[in-house]
């Protein structure tokens, strides 16, 4: 550890946050969730916009999709993740993350598996439409299927 300096530094959070007063954690979380609820419609609008773009550009209906960079798909799926909890419990964000994982594996392997992309896009649409009405087990099964697809592709690299 030669040259390493350890020191106590000012931590205003520790000084002020633990002071007298303040609000209880349970109440703070409740208020924050209520504040987030105000953004729910905007979040859903962003999710729907990105889903439509993903389908239009990377869906099987676009004959020119092979010429597109998967970076754009990654970016669009990231926007769904960023939209943050617009459809809680739908599994949509996890699915968007799975899309990013698939793109990452495709980049690493320098390949592009359109069948796998089609499955992911179809799953995004299903979860958007019905994700919140599925049971946790059903959602988990669907998402596990996606991660299995990606793991298989990763193993083929």
């Amino acid at each position: 550890m030669s040259g390493a300096i350890f020191r106590r530094v000012p931590n205003k959070l520790a000084q002020l946050a633990r002071g007298r007063g303040g609000i209880a954690v349970g109440e703070a979380v409740k208020r924050a969730n209520a504040a987030l609820n105000d953004l729910k419609d905007a979040s859903i609008a962003i999710i729907d916009e990105q889903l439509a773009e993903i389908d239009r550009l990377f869906g099987s209906c676009n004959p020119d999709r092979t010429g597109l960079s998967l970076d754009l798909l990654y970016e669009q799926a990231s926007q769904i993740i960023d939209a943050g909890g617009g459809l809680p419990g739908s599994g949509l964000e996890e699915c968007a993350r799975a899309v990013c994982d698939l793109v990452s594996v495709s980049r690493a392997n320098n390949t592009c598996d359109w069948d796998a992309i089609d499955v992911h896009i179809a799953t995004l649409k299903v979860l958007r439409a019905q994700g919140q009405s599925l049971t946790a087990l059903q959602r988990m099964t669907v998402l596990k299927g996606l991660s299995d697809v990606t793991a298989k592709r990763a193993g083929e690299g």
């Binding site: 002020l16 633990r18 007298r20 303040g22 209880a24 349970g26 703070a28 979040s43 960023d82």
Partner: peptide, 28 residues
Amino acid sequence: DGDKLKLDGINFLLVDDNPHALQIMAQV
């Protein structure tokens, strides 16, 4: 849940290029 935190005197800097994500941080 019963623990208390007093954050009204703390200055937060929130950084995100995505306006909606930034708004989510701010709301929280």
